[in-house]
Design a protein around this nucleic acid. Structure first.
Lengths: 232, 232
DNA sequence: ATATCTGTACTTGTATGATAACTTGAAACC
DNA sequence: GGTTTCAAGTTATCATACAAGTACAGATAT
C-alpha cells in the first residue's frame, strides 16, 4: 500500500494519516510494536525522512512512543479514545454521570456569572427559552435554555464548553426516566419548576441563589440517572 | 543557544521543547514566521533532521503551519493558551481571563469533589505536589498540583478537562507578574500559602472549605491578570 | 545445569548533501 | 504604470552514512 500526497496534503501528512488510521483502527493494540522504519518505508513507498516525521507527529499526539534500539510502540489505541474530549466514551454508562458532573461544575458557575453579567436582552432570551421547554417539551429546548444562560456570562468559553457536551447529555436520556417519575407531563412540569427557580434568581441578579438553583437542577439529573443505573 | 539532550530526552525532544517555549512564551506572535530551518540548525547546533522533526511535532500540536517555499508560521501563541477547544476565538486579549474563568468553574467543583472522594494515596500525591511547587518553583509543578486534585475526584472527565487547558494557563505568565507582586520568592511563598489552605481543607474532607480555597486561589490569578492588562 | 558474559543483527537517533517544488520580491521589459 | 521574468530563499523529499541503544542467541564460566 503506497501512500500518495492528495488534496494539498504533503507526503508526510498522508503517511501520518495512514499510520494513525491503522493504529486507531485497532490493527495495533497498546504495547504493540509498529513495523520498523525501514519496513514502513518500503510498505508506503516513501523515504525514511517522511516516515520519521510521521512518527514524530504521532508521538506528539501521544499515540506512539519510539524507543531507540527497540522500535516504535503504541501507547494509545482505538479503545482509549478519551482524549479529544469532543468524543467522550459515552458507551460506558457511568461516563454519562461523569460528564454530568463536569457539566454541573461549568453550569453552576455559568449561572452565578450570568446572574451578575446578564444584559436585558440576554435575560429575555433565557425567559423565552424556558417558555419553549414548556411548550415544545424538553428534547432540544432544554439544551437551548442552558446555552442561553451560558451566553449571558458573556464569556464565550462557557458556551463553547457547554456545546461540547451537546444536547445528548441530559434530555434525550432523561426521557426514559418517565417510567420512574410518572408521565411525561409530570416530568415537564417538574423540570419547568426547576427552571423557574433558576430564572427568578437570574432576574434578581442573585448570584448565589442562581448557583444553588442550577446545582439543584443538575444534581437532580445526576440522581435520576443513578437511579436508572441501579434499576438495571 | 545550543540545545543539549538532557534527562532521557532526545535531541529532537529538547529542540521541540525549546521551540515551543519560545512560541508559547510570546516571542513569535500569531502569523509570525519562524527562522528558516537552516537558521534554526545553526542557532540550536543541530542537524536539519532534528529541526524538521521538531517542527513536525509542533505542527501535530497545531502550534505552527509550515508552508513550502515560504516558511514556518505560527498559528497559535501564548495568549491562545494551548486549548484545542473547538474553535474559540482566542485572538482577543481578554481570552486568557475567559479561559481562567472556565477553569475556575471546573477546579472549584474539582476541589469540592476531591475533598469527599479522595483516597489516602491521592491526598498523599496532592501533598507531595504542593511540596514540589515550593521546591521547584511554580513552572510546571503548579499545574501538576491542580491535576493531582482533579485526579482525586475519581472522575476522569475533570482530569481531561483540566489537561485541555495545559500548564500554560497560569504559571508561566504569572511569573511576569513578579514586577507587580514583588520578587519571585515572595510570589512562590504567596502561592504556597494558598495551596496550603486548599490542602488542609482536603485533609479535613471539608468540601465547602476546599471549594472556597480553590476559588480564592484562581480568582486571585484572575485579578493579577486583570491588573496586568490594565498596566499595558 | 545454571548463570553470566559477549557478540551480532536489528532498531532508532543524528548528520550531511543533493534535488525538486514552491514562494516571494525585485529587476527588467514593454 | 503594469506585466513578465528571474533569482534567491524556503520547505519537501530522497539517499547514504554512522552513532547509539536493544534484544536475543550462543559461548563461556561457575
Amino acid at each position: 500500500m503506497i501512500v500518495k500526497a492528495q488534496g494539498g496534503d504533503t507526503l508526510t501528512e498522508a503517511t501520518t494519516k495512514a499510520l494513525s488510521a491503522r493504529i486507531l483502527g485497532g490493527e495495533f493494540a497498546i504495547g504493540a510494536r509498529l513495523p520498523s522504519e525501514a519496513q514502513l518505508c518500503t510498505a508506503y513507498g516513501v523515504s525514511r525522512t517522511v516516515v520519521r516525521e510521521a512518527v514524530a507527529a504521532l508521538r506528539a499526539d501521544g499515540l506512539v512512543e519510539p524507543r531507540r534500539g527497540a522500535g516504535v510502540f503504541v501507547v494509545r489505541d482505538s479503545l482509549s479514545v478519551t482524549v479529544p474530549f469532543g468524543e467522550i466514551d459515552f458507551d460506558r454508562l457511568s461516563s454519562v454521570i461523569e460528564v454530568l458532573e463536569l457539566r454541573t461544575a461549568i453550569e453552576v458557575e455559568s449561572a452565578r456569572m450570568a446572574a451578575i453579567r446578564r444584559s436585558g436582552a440576554q435575560i429575555e432570551a433565557i425567559v423565552e427559552a424556558a417558555r419553549a421547554v414548556t411548550a415544545e417539551g424538553p428534547a432540544d429546548a432544554d439544551f437551548a435554555f442552558h446555552v442561553a444562560i451560558a451566553e449571558a456570562t458573556n464569556n464565550p468559553c462557557f458556551v463553547e464548553a457547554l456545546k461540547m457536551f451537546g444536547p445528548t447529555a441530559i434530555p434525550r436520556k432523561a426521557l426514559e426516566d418517565k417510567a420512574l417519575s410518572g408521565t411525561p407531563q409530570d416530568y415537564i412540569a417538574f423540570i419547568d419548576e426547576e427552571h423557574q427557580r433558576i430564572v427568578e434568581a437570574l432576574l434578581d441578579q442573585d448570584a448565589e441563589a442562581a448557583a444553588r438553583a442550577m446545582r439543584g437542577h443538575l444534581e437532580g439529573a445526576q440522581k435520576r440517572y443513578r437511579r436508572l443505573l441501579r434499576a438495571r
